[in-house]
């Protein structure tokens, strides 16, 4: 395990370092995130202002404020795309360089994303969460999040990260078949915005759809940790949701391994 970390950790560490290399990108990135969040925030506030009841889809106005910021930050942290990276690797043929190293292609990608995730967890997520907690207590008059809930949320976020990344890895395998994945990636992201609950909480969907969603891994990517944070699940339900997430991690991991085995044999290196 220690050896494993020593080999793969540099991939995460270098990703964190790379993020500081381009100064302009660093600031613009933060700016873009705040812009996105606040557009989303004002949109929901407008909806609540014009709604007749104070509760929509089981969310009070205060809860919705928390939902907006939490779902935005969590999905931003968790959804570190590797399929686009696989896509680039395939299109310009640089996957060849990765394959000549005695390392596992997926593990390498996972650690790279882990680096990005850690980076985003600090810049700016951590600060937003602290700000949100202060706002929650002082302005919304809600109690401080208890440590148990926070721990469960963080654990759930970690599961979400692995679910998303293993899912995206399977998706990225398409790049080896089609040699081009950019367009499909856009469709995927748009679909995921709905299915993960990032755009609209899942509880706003019709019950039948919610039933179907519960059999898919997508709600486990963003919706579940946010709901745990908001205290929408009882103690048992939290455990059930975490168990379900863990199961998805395993299933998607195995499916990814299976796909790689199939595809490794028919890899084509583009560009000479």
């Amino acid at each position: 395990m220690k050896k494993y970390l020593r080999i793969y950790w540099p991939f995460a560490a270098n990703q964190i370092k790379s993020n500081f290399v381009y100064k302009g990108r660093f600031y613009l990135f933060i700016l873009r995130k705040f812009l996105g969040m606040f557009i989303y925030y004002y949109l929901w506030m407008a909806i609540y202002a014009s709604a007749s009841s104070g509760e929509l889809g089981g969310f009070s106005r205060s809860e919705m404020i928390l939902y907006v910021f939490m779902s935005y930050t969590i999905s931003d942290m968790v959804m570190v795309g590797i399929s686009s990276e696989i896509g680039y690797d395939v299109t310009d043929g640089s996957v060849a360089m990765s394959l000549t190293k005695p390392i596992d292609y997926r593990t390498r990608l996972v650690f790279k994303s882990l680096g990005v995730m850690i980076y985003r967890a600090v810049v700016p997520t951590l600060f937003i969460w602290i700000g949100l907690e202060i706002y929650k207590v002082c302005k919304l008059g809600m109690p401080v999040t208890n440590p148990m809930t926070m721990t469960a949320t963080l654990l759930s976020v970690l599961f979400s990260f692995f679910i998303y990344i293993f899912f995206d890895y399977c998706f990225g395998m398409l790049a080896f078949v089609t040699t081009y994945i950019f367009g499909m990636n856009i469709i995927k992201n748009a679909t995921l915005n709905f299915l993960t609950g990032r755009l609209i909480p899942i509880s706003f969907f019709p019950t039948a759809l919610q039933k179907i969603f519960s059999f898919l891994p997508f709600t486990a990517m963003t919706y579940v940790p946010v709901m745990i944070y908001l205290g929408k699940y009882s103690g048992m339900q939290v455990l059930e949701q975490l168990g379900k997430q863990a199961l998805w991690v395993v299933v998607l991991y195995l499916f990814g391994s299976f796909l790689w085995k199939k595809i490794e044999r028919r890899i084509v290196i583009l560009g000479g």
């Binding site: 270098n14 790379s18 043929g93 640089s94 360089m97 000549t100 190293k101 390392i103 000479g272």
Partner: peptide, 19 residues
Amino acid sequence: NARNIGVVFGQRTQLWWDL
């Protein structure tokens, strides 16, 4: 096998681009 070999592809690089 990768442990036994070293590869240089003249038109690609294995160096870390941003670092």
